[in-house]
Structure formats: C-alpha cells, structure tokens
Simulated assay, not measured.
Amino acid sequence: MSEVMASALDLESLRSFQVAAQLGSLGAAAQQRHRTTSAISMQIKRLEEVLGTRLLERGPRGVTPTAAGEALLQESRELLRLHDGMLSRFTGRGLGGKVRLGLPEDYARELLVDVLPDFIARHPDVLLEAVTATSGELARQLTRSQLALAVVLDRPHPLPGGVSLWRTTPVWAGPRVGRLTERASIPLALHEVDCPYRELAVEALEASGTPWHAVFTSTSIHAVEKAVEAGLAISVIDRERLTSAMRELGRDEGLPLLPPCEARLHVGKRIEEASRPAVEALAALLRERLHERGPWRAAPRST
C-alpha cells in the first residue's frame, strides 16, 4: 500500500507544474499559486522524482517544458479537468450563475479548444455563453452591459481599463505563389468594419501612399484566409495563423510595417451578484493561461 501511495501523483503539484510551464517562470507560478518559489520548485522536483524524468528545463530566462513535460502538460490538464468536475458535482460547492463571454473570432478556436472546456469542467453549474465578434463590436457590447467579460484588441475602439493579456503579431499574408504586390493596386481581403486588422491594413497603406482595393470582404477569418490561400488577395492576420499555403510579406515587397495590437481582458460594469464569483473565476483562468503568452501557448496547435 505504501509503495502505491509513494508513486501517486499529487494534484496540487500538477497544478503548480501546469502554471509554471504556461507562464515560463517559477516566480510567476509562485505568485499565481500564492506560494513561495521554493515551494513550487519542491513540488515540481517531487513530480520529477515520481515520474523518473525531467519535466522543466531551467535557464536564465525562466523554465520551458521538456518533451516529457509537454506530454504531462496535456495529460494532466485532462486529469485535473475530470477531478475538478467530479468534485464540483459531488460536493455541490461549484459556482453558479451565468457568464456571457465575448471573444475576437481570430482567437476563438484556440480558446474553445482548451481554456473554456477547463472552466466548464471546474464549474459545471455555470451557464457559460461565448460569442464572437470584431473587437469594435465587442467593445460596444461591453459598454451596453451585454457582456460580462470580453477579450478585446485595443483597436479600433480602445476601452479604458482592462488587464493586458498579450501583444498580437499582425503581419501581411499573401499566397505562397504569385506577386500580388506588384500590381498597380493591391488587392485586399478584409474583415468588415470594426476589425483591428482591417484598420491596420488600410491605415498603413494609405499612410504610405500605396493604392489598394478590396476584392473580398467577410465577417469570417476563415473565409479571409481562404481568399489569401487561393491567390485572390493579401490580408493582415496574426503571424500564428499563417498556413503552408501562405507566406509572410513585408518591406521586400514594398509593404509598410505594421504595429502590434494588445489584447486586453475587460469586465462588464453591471454583473448580477449571483454571477459575480463565476465571472471572477473565468477572468482569473484567462489571466493565468493567456498572460504574456496568448492563446497559441495556451492551446498548442496540432500539426
């Protein structure tokens, strides 16, 4: 019996490992987990001893998961999700209420894959509704108290306050084959108005005196990307969304530089008291997973 117990994984140590791996820092994990850095280090060391392998590589800039650490990060996430959901259901101590969350469509897929399922497993009695829209539209819904929580880019309608999550990396994207930038007027695939990347593209081209025209406009990021891959146009998307059918364009093609945007987490002004603990819990999870990392680190893309 003692041998079995010695080989058991400690759930709190797994939580500390997850936070350290996601934030890339034992100190940041200690702050997030309300423990000392040495306590976090000891928890991870015990995990490594139980599993017989190194989970984190320590370096001057922080920590990064090893191959074994990456595997544990994925499998432990599911284990903790099942544990938290079961505990909530049997103890009745779960949160309740309703949370309406707004997300920019460009990042919704990654958040839906990982962060939101974790929240639902931990708090199965919370009625969570996630909606996607442009950042401009999300900003309007926040000011109208139609959302309890939203991730909003700081363009085209910056909101006061909020918590910084990550900085985006908008780039010019063109088809792998073709020289669309050599045309007299550059063909663009754009979102509708209120999209930060539409504003970036138009502002940059007009400031540099580069002629352009829209050949494709859509509310769907996937449709815009298909227009680029098909060779119809170039567009501005997050660098992480570049596919094998695209290539990044820039100064060599005569295109102007693009400034980054910042994704910020905003909480609605009017929230029902019964729902406030759930809103705060989701906000804390989003900050934990996305701070200085963005959704790409929170949910690694499959290849």
Rank of each mutant, 00 (worst) to 15 (best):
S275H: 01
E288V: 11
K269M: 08
W296T: 12
S16C: 05
P156Q: 10
A201G: 03
D10M: 03
R239C: 11
G94I: 04
A274P: 00
L47T: 01
A284G: 08
L153I: 02
V228R: 02
E206A: 13
A230H: 10
H213K: 02
E70A: 15
S275D: 02
L14K: 05
G162I: 01
I40K: 02
H83K: 07
G27Y: 04
K269W: 04
P117K: 07
I237E: 02
A133C: 04
L180Y: 10
G161W: 01
V63E: 00
P260Q: 02
E110H: 13
R58E: 12
Q31P: 00
Q22D: 10
L257S: 15
A21I: 02
W296M: 09
G231S: 05
R122D: 08
E248H: 10
M42E: 15
G62F: 07
P300G: 06
L9Y: 09
A233Y: 11
A223H: 13
V171C: 04
E199M: 08
S38F: 07
G250A: 08
L9D: 09
V19Y: 00
L116R: 03
I120V: 15
R247F: 12
V4Y: 11
A67H: 13
E203V: 13
A274Q: 11
E192Y: 10
A278C: 06
V193E: 10
V113K: 11
E137H: 08
G85N: 14
R183K: 13
A71W: 06
L26E: 01
P256R: 06
K226A: 15
H83N: 10
R183V: 10
I186K: 00
V224W: 04
S38P: 02
L56G: 05
P256Q: 07
L111G: 11
Y107R: 00
L180D: 08
